[in-house]
Design a protein around this nucleic acid. Structure first.
Length: 225
DNA sequence: CACCAGGCAAGTA
DNA sequence: TACTTGCATGGT
């Protein structure tokens, strides 16, 4: 089957099953960015506790957070794990925002999308997924986010190889779908929702997955032996 | 107890 | 270039 048809079919099934997921769960673009960094290799539940702490202290604003001492910030984001590393990463982004855009997110997102992506990737602590999450979910730019669930689901449906590079997977979606931020937003959200529920590393619940009807059964059973 | 979670950078060969 | 390792809390 052609990738275009296959990706559209997956989208239709998941969208019909879950409906609009209203991602990213945040009250502001800045909260999206903070969440994108804090959720690296960490459950969203733990990130929520860290975000709550920051909100309680009224620190969820670029300039306020930038002025917060590292040890104070580290203590507040403790529940999200890797808290020393993530403190540095948040500060690295905030220094970049301050230096290049006067601490103003509107100026940041006024940049051309691929030029901005390249700049974000120079920040220590912002890799491809985090950069794309910021661009799509905070900046509403039409770029596809690839994460562990995206890779795992596509691999288990034999659409990609297990070691397919990030850019290849991203291009698969972007070359075969309408270039639309709302569609890329919802599609990635659907993949994460499905992944969390049915495509965890061990004990995958493939039979109950909404995509089981189109599953390449041979590929999936071989992977689950 | 072991394993996992909406990654990333730095080190090694 | 292609692996490996450290980072850390909290849930299952």
């Amino acid at each position: 089957m052609h990738p275009t048809a296959e990706l559209l079919r997956i989208y239709e099934i998941l969208n019909g099953h879950y409906g609009n997921l209203h991602w990213w769960p945040a009250d502001s673009p800045f909260e999206v960015i903070v969440g994108a960094i804090l959720t690296q290799n960490t459950t969203w539940h733990n990130v929520e506790r860290a975000i709550f702490n920051l909100k309680t202290k009224n620190l969820l604003h670029p300039k306020k957070l930038f002025k917060t001492r590292d040890d104070i910030l580290a203590d507040l984001i403790l529940p999200s794990g890797y808290y020393r590393v993530k403190t540095k990463r948040l500060k690295a982004f905030l220094a970049f925002l301050n230096d290049e855009y006067k601490g103003n997110l509107d100026r940041l997102f006024n940049e051309e999308i691929w030029a901005l992506r390249k700049k974000l990737l120079t920040i220590k602590g912002i890799g491809e997924e985090t950069a794309d999450s910021i661009l799509l979910y905070a900046g509403e730019k039409p770029i596809f986010v690839v994460d562990a669930y995206t890779r795992r689901i596509l691999h288990r449906h034999a659409i990609i190889s297990g070691n397919a590079p990030y850019a290849e997977i991203q291009n698969l979606f972007m070359a075969n779908l309408t270039q639309s931020a709302p569609i890329f937003n919802q599609y990635h959200a659907l993949l994460v929702q499905t992944g969390k529920q049915f495509c965890i590393k061990k004990n995958p619940l493939c039979g109950q997955c909404p995509l089981s009807s189109i599953t390449n059964h041979r590929a999936v059973t071989a992977l689950h032996k």
